[in-house]
């Protein structure tokens, strides 16, 4: 479980870095915040304490909202381009794909972690 937390922490840090490199500073900040939420819970997750679960849930909620928000922002931009320029500039492997994959990952992660903590 703790290892999965490390993976998600690194995942969100990488996403944040890629966003900052593409001059998307505030979204990068959000990604780093999600990463920090998971990072602060790694030790407690190894110890299987309630605090560890709290970090998984909170990271999942903020990460999930971020994924949803980023998808809306992305598709709104695509739609806006369509209205103004008459063409679609859809690049699914931008940061959008990363945030969706991470959001899906943490949903599965949250379901798995619930079972994990219930066994204690």
């Amino acid at each position: 479980m703790g290892l999965m937390m490390i993976v998600v922490t690194i995942g969100y840090s990488a996403l944040g870095l890629s966003m900052i490199l593409s001059k998307d500073y505030m979204d990068g900040f959000v990604a780093f915040t999600v990463s920090a939420i998971f990072a602060f819970g790694i030790r407690d997750t190894f110890r299987r304490t309630k605090s560890g679960l709290a970090h998984i849930i909170a990271g999942g909620v903020i990460g999930g909202i971020f994924g949803l928000f980023y998808s809306i922002e992305y598709f709104a931009n695509v739609f806006d381009h369509l209205i103004n320029d008459g063409n679609i500039s859809f690049k699914p492997f931008d940061n959008l794909a990363g945030s969706i994959i991470l959001a899906l990952f943490i949903i599965i992660f949250a379901i798995y972690s619930k079972k994990h903590f219930e066994t204690d």
Binding site: T33, A36, F40, G41, K50, A54, I57, A58, F66
Partner: peptide
């Protein structure tokens, strides 16, 4: 669980700015 993190000494303010 959410309050444990959302009102955290170090994480609380970055979460607020992110939201």
């Amino acid at each position: 669980a959410l309050d444990h993190v959302f009102t955290h000494k170090f994480l609380g303010i970055p979460i607020f700015i992110s939201i």
